[in-house]
């Protein structure tokens, strides 16, 4: 484990914590896309199928449990919690899941590292994770007025994959380990999708102004 991987994991963890903080303490999920949250729940459920069979380290197992538990509980809060669900922007969050899920599944069946159930599911989770942020970005664009926690959530979520890319480069040069090109492409796509958001995030930060996306 190198510093970039750890920083990436921590950024990812913080993004989830920021979101849970918003939901738990403010009892609001305004500006958060349930579609994106449901996609992440699917991503973790299909990626961590090996959680009990492929033991890497206690760290890995605990983090997997955290991501699985948090993603499903966020979905539960947004759908069923009697106060939280009232703040959900249902009418604005209209992105349809299957437009992303179906192509990712087909692509995973066609392009994968190995044609086994676990590998296809693992590849599917990578493809889906790369695009899962899209409903959230669409919602941000529509909501216009983005609160601080929501902005930080999306920023941390985007930064996590960017740090993973640095980690892959580092591992490529320092270890015998290299990640598959599928992982590279997905990681790059995922980061690039956030690039536009990053730009406006830094602009608002630099000018000390409230984050707003252009129409």
């Amino acid at each position: 484990m190198n510093i970039f991987r750890l920083a990436g994991d921590m950024t990812h963890l913080f993004s989830v914590l920021v979101l849970l903080l918003k939901i738990h303490t403010i009892k609001s999920c305004a500006g958060i896309s349930l579609k994106t949250q449901e996609l992440y729940a699917i991503v973790f459920a299909t990626r961590y199928l090996d959680i009990f069979t492929n033991h890497i380290s206690p760290y890995n197992t605990i983090m997997k449990l955290i991501f699985l538990g948090s993603s499903f509980s966020i979905v539960w809060y947004m759908r069923y919690h009697k106060i939280v669900r009232r703040s959900y922007d249902k009418d604005q969050d209209t992105f349809r899941h299957y437009i992303l899920i179906l192509p990712c599944l087909i692509l995973a069946l066609l392009i994968n590292e190995k044609f086994t159930f676990k590998e296809v599911m693992w590849t599917f989770s990578l493809y889906l994770e790369a695009v899962a942020i899209l409903p959230q970005l669409v919602l941000l664009q529509r909501t216009r007025n983005i609160d601080n926690l929501t902005g930080q959530y999306v920023f941390l979520l985007g930064a996590y994959r960017a740090l993973y890319i640095v980690n892959w480069i580092y591992r490529y040069f320092t270890e015998d380990h290299f990640v598959h090109w599928i992982t590279w492409v997905c990681g790059l796509v995922q980061t690039l999708l956030c690039a536009d958001f990053f730009y406006y995030y830094f602009q608002s930060w630099k000018n000390n102004m409230k984050l707003q996306l252009p129409a």
Partner: peptide, 10 residues
């Protein structure tokens, strides 16, 4: 060994 398996990242 090389390669990305077993998947040791999150």
């Amino acid at each position: 060994k090389g390669g990305s398996e077993p998947h040791d990242e999150l």
